[in-house]
Design a protein around this nucleic acid. Structure first.
Lengths: 333, 333
DNA sequence: CTGAAAGCGCTAACAA
DNA sequence: TTGTTAGCGCTTTCAG
């Protein structure tokens, strides 16, 4: 059943059928009704591919993320899909993993599928070495690229993100002020926001003229139990600290497990602050104080910016929101 | 840049260009190289919409889930996307929420987008009242429908799932044998697998001639803290139990919180068993014993079944796998 | 307000 | 091995 069949049965031309399908007003109410009746009678749906070919769009947005099973990224994807759907866009999901070459391959795949835009979810898409971001800049020559929690300065690239620098700066300062002079900073990513957080940590110290011992900044990649063991090892080696800030809730849960195994009371002897305020922050015990980086807001802004771009409205190429510490049981403030 | 431009620049016909693009062997090596050179020089990519129109497929699979931010469903989506990608298929993700009408709307949307198949992820898509599944049966007249953790007996509908009945039966029996005569069963869904689990719980009791007190089977929908409070209330009302089996890890984490708040020691005074073995099972404290329903296996089977369908091979309309209890700290066995 | 007809870019059957 | 050509089903311009 195609537009020709319908036009024939309705006794009109295909142009008229097309007009009623697309809500074109230049159709008399009478013909409109006649055509609609046939359409419904035969349960006709226009062929999306033909439509795509003619209009050069299938109303699809590519969503690129490293790992959609990560609860934090999963939430972002969920928000994005919901909001895009409201705007009549569908979401083509691609999980790239953390390998640079794969990210590039996936992005090109999405371009070849002719999506209307692609959203890169998670700061791990922005590398420090500028040439590694070249493939994104290149893609932006074809379609607008949205960055969620990352930023690249190049034409047609837009970012929606949280001020991770300031958030980390603040909680670090707060800890330092409440007499936690020995803070361990644990991170697992050198991404755009990873660097911002780290800088916040450092700057908070210098703003109070406190020196950081290099071994109080630790890079570690691993699951919850591996993180726990890593910390045990650190302690064994003689490193002392009375609080931990992590770049990620998973790391923080590892820290909680570490404290428990070592019989260290939280938050009395050790304060722990996570990042992302994801679901696991309320699963652990004690429940984790975590920096909420306003994922829903950031996603909403991302989608509305995108819609404005499509409408030809002028939009900010960067939107920054404030994060906020959600205090639970692993901190005293 | 389209196929005509390329053919012209290469001095061949568009048919030849099409042949080299599609790896058709009926092209002399010499022309192939000549054409490839031009293609690469101009970085030409065939138009996916035109291709879709001609072939009547864009190699896309619809993935329907209620809520992709649920860690368990998120993992399923992740597995599916990865495996589909290997088979050259892309994933159109749709998060329907739990409302029946929305599920139906989304499924029809996917049909109109002409996806090659759709995977319904999660047993919540299969309702007990048969007429509520009619829209799925209807969709299956157009394209094969895959059910992950659910089953519907109708043509062109295929299921890949875990034997939830048996798994629940076994752990229930195990508890009963180890002198836990008062088991509370907590569930939050009347879906296909929800019913199977419940039946397993009941049958294990009857197989050992043990009667179940009706109030030991509780339906509750809410987040972790609400679940905790629900249990506190249950206890207040005088209900006694020395173990809890839940249909879901989230509920089980609520149970752990309940025990902690009430000063009940786990697993000595109370055993807790969750379901899904999702990431949060290792976040909580004590870590949760949970039934692993082999999500990766089930997903892999789903995708390979689908590929076989596309290839015209005969496939089982239902594949059932065994679940397995992963013992952690909330049980003694 | 309606219709005729020219694309959109590709695949594949058929001819050569 | 290569080329010609007829679709695929829709949108949209242009005439009327």
């Amino acid at each position: 059943m195609n537009i020709y069949d319908i036009s024939q049965k309705a006794g009109v031309s295909i142009a008229t059928v097309s007009r009623v399908i697309n809500g074109n007003t230049n159709v008399s109410e009478k013909t409109r009704q006649k055509v609609m009746a046939i359409i419904e009678q035969y349960d006709y749906t226009p062929n999306a591919f033909a439509r795509g070919l003619g209009l050069n769009t299938m109303q699809t947005i590519g969503i690129l993320c490293a790992d959609s099973s990560d609860p934090y990224l999963a939430s972002a994807i969920f928000y994005l899909e919901q909001m895009l759907h409201k705007e009549q866009y569908d979401s083509l999901l691609c999980c790239t993993g953390y390998d640079q070459a794969d990210k590039e391959k996936y992005l090109n795949l999405l371009l070849s599928k002719k999506v209307d835009s692609v959203v890169l979810v998670g700061s791990n898409f922005v590398e420090t070495e500028e040439e590694k971001n070249q493939y994104i800049i290149e893609a932006a020559k074809t379609i607008p690229i949205m960055l969620l929690n990352g930023a690249i300065d190049a034409p047609n690239i837009y970012s929606s993100l949280c001020d991770d620098y300031h958030a980390t700066f603040q909680v670090t300062q707060q800890l330092l002020e409440s007499d936690h002079k020995e803070i361990l900073y644990l991170y697992n990513s050198n991404s755009y926001s990873g660097k911002k957080k780290l800088k916040g940590f450092y700057d908070a110290h210098s703003s109070m003229n406190i020196k950081i011992n290099d071994s109080h900044v630790q890079y570690f990649v691993g699951d919850i139990h591996e993180t726990r063991d890593f910390l045990i090892n650190l302690k064994k080696k003689g490193l002392t600290f009375n609080s931990i800030i992590t770049a990620d809730d998973n790391l923080a849960v590892g820290a909680i497990k570490y404290a428990k195994l070592q019989g260290i009371s939280v938050p009395d002897e050790l304060s722990i602050i996570g990042y992302n305020n994801s679901i696991i922050a309320t699963c652990c015990d004690p429940e984790l104080s975590s920096i909420d980086n306003k994922l829903e807001t950031v996603c909403k802004n991302c989608v509305s910016t995108l819609m404005n771009i499509f409408s030809g409205n002028s939009v900010p190429f960067r939107s920054v929101f404030s994060a906020e510490l959600v205090s639970r049981e692993t901190t005293k403030f």
